[in-house]
């Protein structure tokens, strides 16, 4: 479905993503992990067109989309969330999502249909659908849900979910994981899920790729990746406990 080849992104002289290649199959949940600053969000920014790519190719459903502007990438069927939520505070909750529904698809839809789809997307992430609900009533977890609802309202085929966020407790992260699983099951949407800690993610994803310093260092089934010596090394240096937890989570109980 999505094939990324030798993707490279430089900021000035700094190489944030270095010749990363990977593919996503339709219907899959692919985990994209790596320590802080390893380039995960940058991969998303480049694939989604938010940032221009330096080199490499991005093919979606057989067509090159590398370098397309973000609105066109969205119209092709790829939606993304932002790691740090970026709600439109001037708009109500429903209006936030309605903008996505109305503008996010590659075809004109009626306004009434857009409002319906906005409500559906909000219901899918279990946020209030009333017209009076406001954004500033949301906490950290709610804002992450809003990001997801906005992405879903564009009726995407692929969602790039940048979920790596401090501030969510264990239960909230479990909830988020279940939600992504539900979304795939109900809507058949393919998902790339970014996290920096492996714990919860490993339970849900089909496959994992691991980035470190902008390079892909491992790829495979969650369990195999969690036991990969290079991955353990990367995580032991900074987050040994997380790696151990991830290995536990990936082990069949």
């Amino acid at each position: 479905m999505l094939a990324v080849q030798d993707l490279t992104k430089q900021f000035g002289g700094f190489v944030a993503v270095n010749r990363v290649s990977f593919a996503v199959e339709e219907g899959e949940i692919l985990g994209l992990i790596g320590p802080n600053g390893s380039g995960k969000s940058t991969v998303f920014n480049v694939v989604a067109g938010t940032l221009p790519l330096t080199a490499g190719s991005v093919r979606f459903e057989g067509k090159e989309i590398g370098g397309l502007p973000p609105d066109q990438v969205c119209h092709r069927g790829i939606a993304r969330t932002f790691q740090i939520p970026r709600p439109f505070k001037r708009l109500s909750l429903l209006e936030n999502v309605a903008v996505s529904a109305f503008y996010g698809q590659n075809r004109d839809i009626s306004r009434s249909r857009a409002w319906e789809q906005a409500e559906e997307a909000l219901a899918l992430v279990k946020l209030p659908t009333e017209a009076t609900a406001t954004v500033d009533a949301l906490g950290a977890a709610g804002l992450k849900k809003l990001e997801l609802a906005r992405a879903l309202a564009t009726q995407p085929k692929l969602v790039l979910a940048d979920e790596s966020l401090g501030g969510l407790d264990e239960a909230e992260m479990e909830q988020a994981a279940d939600m992504l699983q539900d979304i795939r099951r109900q809507k058949g949407i393919t998902i790339i899920w970014v996290e920096h800690i492996m714990g919860v993610l490993m339970r849900v994803v089909d496959r994992v790729i691991v980035l470190d310093h902008g390079e892909k260092i491992a790829e495979g089934l969650p369990r195999a990746v969690a036991e990969d010596p290079r991955v353990i090394e990367v995580y032991l240096g900074r987050q040994g406990t997380a790696a151990a937890a991830a290995a536990d989570a990936a082990r069949p109980s």
């Binding site: 067109g49 938010t50 973000p70 969205c74 439109f88 505070k89 503008y103 996010g104 309202a153 564009t154």
Partner: peptide, 12 residues
């Protein structure tokens, strides 16, 4: 409020 976020949901 946020051009990047608006563009990411399809707004030209």
């Amino acid at each position: 409020e946020d051009e990047d976020a608006a563009a990411s949901v399809g707004v030209h």
